[in-house]
Design a protein around this nucleic acid. Structure first.
Lengths: 220, 220, 220, 220
DNA sequence: GATGAATGAGATTTCATTCAT
DNA sequence: TATGAATGAAATCTCATTCAT
């Protein structure tokens, strides 16, 4: 795998497969319904209707409405964590690693905006509900990015005076806010903009984090 | 006012005053309850209990539970908008303007973490409920920041190839994510860290946005 | 008070008062509905309808459907326990004590058959639900009766070879089964039969428990 | 058969046979589940799980959950009715007949406490559900006992002023309450206590029912 | 202004029963 | 026979909102 070359491995997870599996059908329907109405505003029957299955079948496969969202979040977030770990293990520059991550997240949105909307809106910021439940899993991503930054500082590529955890949060936050912009229809979502957005985040944040020396190198 | 000099005008709004006004009592109680339990998980009676007033009084002052949150959000967000507009009108460098904004938001959190938690968790990301209701108000802030960036590009201080709206979102998102880090208890929240966080965001994002020329200048 | 003289203090508890108190209204309605349909077969809305109040008011006064039955049971059973304790403290023959108890229970049924039906059918035999919850309270009655029997044995009035706990259960069981007979409409429930039933239980059980000597005396 | 001599024909019914018959497996599992959780609190799947068979098989053999309990009750109660009829037809004293019945019921409990618990808790007192359904079958037992008492009165063995139906209920109720005592773990259930319980009921109730003349005889 | 009892629509969840295989 | 996925009616409980005092 050469993430860094911009091959941009398509971040397609389980949701990509067409399926007649009822469980999958329910999960996919739930994504649409959660995205359209929000987790709280929708009823379980909305999910069942959207999936074209009976009310009770949702409870045959999931213990509760919560568990449906838990499942969706974990499926996706774990794919991302795996991707980040894989990227991290490659012998490439930190800028390329961060570019791969930004690319992955943006492409995830491009590929399945509903799912990413649900994850961002209902989980990663939901400090009093799902965000709290999954905080350790969420944090894992921040920590992995933070680790990359520490390493880059040790290598003299990133400024040493930066607090890595803070930088990781800022980096991730910049990306998530771009997705929020698309979600709220505040930003144009034509294809070209997705690519420019990736570039912007990496250019901006990395540009700010890099030492003069490394900057010269990366620009060159 | 010289926002740029780091005097950091204390971002204290209405919530700063002690008050025996029952309406205020209810609003302040609502902040604590919303922050502690979340908007959906709390009941109107929880707010009344926390405020030490009777159940029905909440409905004497507010038409609905929603209106309580609407009020809290608008009170605070408008203070911020006013601040941003004021900053924008000052004849200072864009970096100073952004520094002032970052400072204002971070200090807002430092001064009243519960209120900022509520605003971020329940409003600015709540795409299917309050976020949608207040999107125009929220957007105002993004647009003002975006305007600063456009101007900076026209002045040759910021790279011209950056999409201003995207940059504004990334900048705001970086800050909001730091607040999210504190909210989730993922980042240390001793006093020094608030200051370093402000510096980090400005240094990083502006560092990345600035042209070589301006960078030389700002570093000097 | 001279319970032993057959004055048969009317076993009227709280349910005896007509009331406009909504809580009482609900409890009284619940008795009728539980008696008519059974606890499991009735819905909370049936209780509300029967009481002529809104659905939610039941939950304003009681935490759950269970709590309604708990309340009914405890109200009544505690009146009975108090009565038994009072009887026990009087300086009268054990036969008179047991007669008073039998009389109290039978009159309780005569006075409010629905309530006694509910208590017997839904609580005292409901080993897997309410019976289990209230077993200590129920047992109290058995123990008090058992204590009377022990004392009678010490006084040489009752046969010493009888196990007091078993005898107490048999005595109470005989009475409860008569009530069950009325509940199931297997026994005639004209007024005279209630009095004869009291006499029967006391005559039979005590007759069997007494020593020859005491029997001579009691017959005389 | 000489029931009266205390040979105590073992009251073993169908449940005594080990069986690989699935229908039997389900019935036996149902007894355990009903006894453990109560009829209402358990699900059909609990029965299937306990029996180690598939969910749907319960419905292959029984039309409904109710029918499972109906079957269990009728199987056992009919064995008892047959026993009582047989006893009744023997040329023995009424005291011996009642002793045989008490013995049979107590031994039934000793042999299969779960089944008797289910019958008592879920059927014989369940005035609004199964008790009502099976009232004629249940009543049969009371009537048979009542018939014995009438005959004893005609023979001058039992007091003539006693209402036979009431006496039959009291007798049966005394026994059932002893079982209830064991079910609720209020009475000791070592082997000796079962025997003493039989003796107690017969001694007590018959002792109280007999005329002086017969008493002299029975004592002798 | 202030109180809290009263209302009732609506949500989640359960689970007996059916049925295709 | 045997399986267990699929169905959907029905029940409990919640809680925003109203309103009489």
């Amino acid at each position: 795998m050469s993430v860094a070359r911009g091959d941009s491995r398509s971040p397609i997870g389980p949701r990509g497969k067409a399926s007649t599996d009822k469980r999958r059908l329910i999960l996919d329907a739930a994504v649409r319904v959660f995205a359209r109405q929000g987790f709280h505003a929708c009823r379980v029957s909305d999910i069942a209707d959207e999936a074209g299955v009976a009310y009770g079948l949702v409870y045959h496969y999931f213990a509760s409405k919560d568990e449906v969202l838990d499942t969706l979040f974990l499926e996706r977030w774990n794919v991302m964590l795996e991707f980040i770990r894989e990227v991290d293990s490659e012998p490439i520059a930190v800028r390329e690693k961060l570019r791969a991550i930004a690319s992955f997240i943006v492409d995830s949105y491009r590929h399945d905006p509903d799912l990413m909307k649900v994850i961002i809106v209902e989980v990663t910021r939901a400090a009093n509900s799902f965000g709290n439940t999954h905080i350790d899993t969420i944090r894992e991503a921040y920590d992995l990015i933070g680790g990359m930054i520490i390493k880059a500082q040790e290598d003299g590529v990133f400024k040493p005076e930066i607090e890595s955890r803070f930088a990781a949060m800022a980096f991730y936050g910049a990306i998530e806010q771009l997705l929020t912009g698309w979600i709220f229809d505040l930003l144009p979502d034509e294809d070209e903009y997705f690519e420019r957005a990736k570039w912007l985040v990496v250019e901006t944040v990395c540009g700010g984090l890099e030492t003069k020396a490394s900057e010269q190198a990366s620009v060159t």
